[in-house]
């Protein structure tokens, strides 16, 4: 399948591996990709944890995005960077995995992932377990061919309404087809939670920029990420970002994504922004 283990795979090589305990891996961001959102640092770290968890559970189940209690962004990934990821699994069984993770670039920590809790679902519903087992062998051996990743599209947000410097709503029309669906996942394509979080933080960054004109807003911390439902290709979501508190140049926004007809949000989080002058 075109794009398989390339379009949305952020582990090229696994250099240290204890199933269900710990792992280290790496991913080279191709020099020619234009857009590599910071949320993909969390994706890369989470994917390494997923390999460790799936191997421990013999590929019966796989983790999907659930809860990430705290994600701290300490640096910005750039095309050409070599990303080194490291995870430690706290617990793992057929129902749930919890783990911590770190991503580094050039030896400097660029991401800390604290207390991630992912539900484990039947692996065969999402992918071919044997094919996954085979690709893990590749990662553990010489590694996959470098620079397979061709980038992800910037998903456009259609403004609905806003209160300047206070909140904004926008519509996200999830594409019916996109290369990343080939990897996420072959048997059940769904919008990656990390791309949804990128859309939400982009929306919030716009509100922060209005509240602090002249500064550059960047997300420092995302807390209490919770993804409750899968979002299918072609779905429409309403995104909302509301500034809750502002203290000097640190601002906290509540992020929420809703699908029509669903009682609870599809996903939500709190994001802390810092504004550089």
């Amino acid at each position: 399948m075109p794009g398989r283990y390339a379009a949305f795979t952020f582990v090229d090589r696994i250099t240290s591996f204890e199933p269900g305990i710990a792992a280290r891996g790496s991913f080279h961001i191709p020099s020619d990709v234009g857009h590599f959102p910071a949320s993909l640092l969390a994706e890369a770290t989470g994917q390494l944890a997923a390999w460790s968890a799936m191997a421990k559970q013999d590929f019966r189940v796989r983790p999907v995005a659930g809860v990430a209690h705290e994600t701290v962004y300490l640096g910005v990934p750039r095309p050409g960077d070599l990303l080194e990821t490291e995870i430690r699994i706290d617990s793992c069984d057929d129902e749930v995995v919890s783990y911590q993770g770190i991503a580094r670039i050039g030896g400097t920590t660029v991401l800390e992932l604290h207390d991630v809790v992912g539900p484990m679902l039947p692996a065969g519903d999402f992918d071919d377990p044997e094919a996954m087992r085979g690709f893990l062998d590749v990662l553990l051996g010489g590694g996959a061919t470098a620079d397979r990743f061709r980038g992800v599209p910037v998903l456009p947000l259609a403004p609905i309404d806003r209160e300047t410097g206070r909140c904004a709503r926008a519509r996200l029309d999830v594409p019916a087809a996109a290369p990343f669906f080939a990897d996420h996942f072959p048997r059940r394509p769904v919008l990656p939670g990390t791309l949804l979080m990128d859309c939400l933080t982009r929306l919030a960054a716009g509100v922060v920029a209005e509240a602090r004109p002249g500064g550059t807003a960047f997300v420092r911390r995302v807390s209490d990420v919770k993804l409750r439902a899968f979002t299918e290709p072609g779905a429409t979501l309403e995104l909302r970002a509301t500034l809750e508190s502002t203290e000097n140049d640190t601002m906290i926004a509540t992020l929420e994504a809703r699908a029509e007809g669903q009682r609870r949000p599809v996903g939500g989080a709190h994001a802390t922004f810092e504004v550089a002058r």
């Binding site: 659930g66 129902e95 609870r264």
Partner: peptide, 12 residues
């Protein structure tokens, strides 16, 4: 309005 993901979160 709790859902299964909330129970995982809560127990954690």
């Amino acid at each position: 309005g709790a859902e299964s993901i909330d129970f995982l979160d809560l127990v954690f």
